[in-house]
């Protein structure tokens, strides 16, 4: 019987939500689930603040909730409306199968992390690490099995979340300035990628990355 702390529970739930994201082809549902995933990660960050005595983590939690889980999905939803793209039919693997494999990857990362040395004294050890690795793998799967540029951005964001969760659960929290720098990078990255998507749509009249290698005359 495994007993989880609140932090471990929230990050594992965010990993499960990210896995559910792979199963839906509606980009809007994906964005909603991404928002929910990130809110859970923000809550986990807030919960980490108390045992580690790092009040600055509370500020970071607020920033994550505001920027990553509200501003970025809204921006991407706005981009989707502008270029009239709402559904990604997927490539290579059908979305349901991809979702099942991401659940299996969750189990795999659970097995993998049992062999990892875990630093003592942090809020969440093994299970936090397995949630982080699972988020990275899920994001990778999302990027591999989707065709549209918007989905690539979402997959990238999930990977970023995974790396953040891994760092959060394995350390005593990073300095505020680094966290804010990363957040800014992510925001700018998504902005640029969104604008690029918009430009790709304007030039090629589609955002299907499978067809981007075709020459345009």
């Amino acid at each position: 019987m495994i007993v989880l702390t609140n932090i471990e529970l929230t990050v594992l739930m965010s990993a499960v939500l990210a896995a559910l994201m792979v199963g839906s082809v509606h980009l809007r549902v994906n964005l909603w689930l991404y928002g929910a995933t990130t809110i859970l990660i923000a809550i986990a960050t807030g919960l980490t603040a108390y045992p580690n005595e790092e009040p600055s983590l509370l500020l970071i939690a607020l920033l994550i909730a505001g920027l990553k889980s509200i501003a970025i999905p809204l921006f991407l939803a706005w981009t989707m409306d502008r270029i009239h793209v709402h559904r990604d039919l997927g490539a290579l693997v059908a979305p349901p199968i991809a979702m099942h494999s991401s659940i299996l990857l969750l189990g795999l990362s659970f097995l993998l992390t049992q062999g990892l040395p875990t630093p003592s004294g942090t809020g969440a050890g093994w299970y936090g690490a397995s949630a982080g690795i699972s988020l990275v793998l899920t994001g990778l799967l999302l990027m591999l099995t989707r065709r549209l540029a918007i989905s690539q951005i979402i997959g990238f964001l999930v990977i970023e979340n995974g790396i953040y969760v891994f760092a959060l659960t394995q350390t005593r929290g990073m300095p505020l300035i680094i966290e804010m720098g990363i957040l800014l990078d992510v925001l700018v990255g998504v902005m640029l990628a969104g604008l690029l998507t918009f430009k790709i749509q304007e030039t090629f009249e589609h955002i299907d990355i499978a067809k981007l290698t075709d020459l345009k005359d």
Binding site: P96, M99, L104
Partner: peptide, 25 residues
Amino acid sequence: IPEFIAYAITMSLLAALIAVAGGIV
């Protein structure tokens, strides 16, 4: 419809994972 049923299978898969891990509180 398979996409809808996939969610039911996912829930069962997660339950199976928990069963393999020995139960989670």
